[in-house]
Design a protein around this nucleic acid. Sequence first.
DNA 1: TTGTAGGCGTTATCAA
DNA 2: TTGATAACGCCTACAA
Lengths: 339, 339
Amino acid sequence: MKKKITLKHIARELEVSISTVSKALKDSAEISKDTKEKIQAFAKLYNYRPNNIALSLKNRRTKNIGVIIPEIVHHFFATVIRGIEKYANNRGYNVIICVSNESFDKEVINMEMLANGSTDGFIMALSAETEFKEDFNHLREVMEQGMPLVLFDRVTNEIDCDKVVIDDREGAYSATKKLINNGNKRIALFTTENFFSVSSEREEGYKQALLDHNYEVSENLILKLDYIDMDNKPIEDFFDREKVDAVLCVNETFGIRAIRVVQEMGLKVPEDVSLIGFTNGFLSKYSYPSLTTVDQHGGDMGEKAAQMLIDRLESEDENEIYETKVLKSTLIERESTIN
Amino acid sequence: MKKKITLKHIARELEVSISTVSKALKDSAEISKDTKEKIQAFAKLYNYRPNNIALSLKNRRTKNIGVIIPEIVHHFFATVIRGIEKYANNRGYNVIICVSNESFDKEVINMEMLANGSTDGFIMALSAETEFKEDFNHLREVMEQGMPLVLFDRVTNEIDCDKVVIDDREGAYSATKKLINNGNKRIALFTTENFFSVSSEREEGYKQALLDHNYEVSENLILKLDYIDMDNKPIEDFFDREKVDAVLCVNETFGIRAIRVVQEMGLKVPEDVSLIGFTNGFLSKYSYPSLTTVDQHGGDMGEKAAQMLIDRLESEDENEIYETKVLKSTLIERESTIN
DNA sequence: TTGTAGGCGTTATCAA
DNA sequence: TTGATAACGCCTACAA
């Protein structure tokens, strides 16, 4: 196997010095035309490429962006990554993706690994366990080492850094209002444990909409589901217990599972029960009936996060004023609600 | 902002030499207990971590695995990555993921970028465009530079390297046989353009099953759908044109879209039309009715690919005999077929 | 016009 | 027991 060729090889082969080669390949005016041509031809022939590692060591920058997401099998995060890629590639940055798998330990390990010279900065959404433990020391350490951090979607007030979120509260508010306007009387909320920042925001929006329209807010109508466990029993029990004609779900899978349970009980969506979810993914689009959802615009979120990070990386002055960008969400109406 | 601390800082601070620090932190026997304790305590206090970049430069290895996938919003690829992560992390490797977005150019750029010192080897599935163009020079170059490559799922015979695939032909064969045994008479195939290696394999299996059971193979029953375009018109036209009672689809979305179209025509799944897809993802599980699918065991595939790559990275002798591992697929029976 | 030297952070070898 | 030095690949200020 051919080994990678370096400046040194070229220099030895052509009997010039390494710096001559280096300069020639940069088309420096210092080097004579003859020498340059000779060196450039040779380099091309042997397919010379500068070693990124050496450059990183020298320049103290990698031109890599580290992205840590809780879960890869998830439409929303996938679209965010797409947005990041799109923007970052344009500005000459490479995107390195790692998955925390909702685990605090894995998140810390990934971060330390990437922070040790693999990336210039981070874009991340917190893992479930991190939000639960409220332990953010790994984020602080990274920032103290001078690596900028942009949090998206799953954020925390404990850390002062750039953030991109959607108006979760407003999204839930509009969705609930839509159900109210459709004439639904008893509107439930299917959510996760509220250590998820997004879930508690959405719960607020749901409650506020009910209050503003003189609906009663009842904890009995709020069902907290496990984010890992896929068992539908709690949902079935809920529908047995509570007579509701609409449900707002804080994510896509809850919505789809609710559709399923409703149908299995012999009821119809949306005639008997209207449903709205969050995250406008394939599931929502291709379920039957298709699911009305709050679109979180993952792509835009990714682009914005990448922009904030790169701007900070490339700005001269270390300004300590951080920004939180709030993107608008959009209600995508489909078959699971009455039009 | 605190800068990252290096051996040099510690050495200067403690008035010892850099090499003493280096050795002390490795708990070398050469260094006195006193000095070691002092240095280790100091390093811990300032949270010293060796710089990976420098290590990579020195060791000529990064302990990173580059993974290039065509598409991130895709359940199958996501599960493969999970498998790779799981195995690789166990063996001390970091996983770097890049997305080609089905584009040849992006695949080449990603590869060159990662090959320039960011990774020790590659695991990848070819982009649609690469399979179409049949241009594999970037793969050859990387291999010539001594970086091992493991292809999975979307592979090519043009490149001699380790590969992991499922028995696509056998999977399609079994699925078709299932439909035949259920008494279906006119069985269609919804596939992509056949430059996709997996699609043509699956088509072979479908045809073989028909032949083996004295069914007629008709090109009229084979519908080729665009892999990007989500328009259902061709599917509707097909059902208008051809009277079929079963369809084998080469992926999950085709299956789901087919369910949708069938239902919109007022027909029932599986009573009027039975359906089987490939890829056992959320869509299959949560569609209504749920979709019978051929499970490709993405997780196992990822683990196997990672194992093959790391074994090759760590083996002393450069053996040039490459292996193609074929994993068994499994038919997951759900509601879209008669049981 | 070309070459030398030093440095980025680390480790291994050898000298003190 | 500790330290100096060279090397990994690259770049650049400066010397020749």
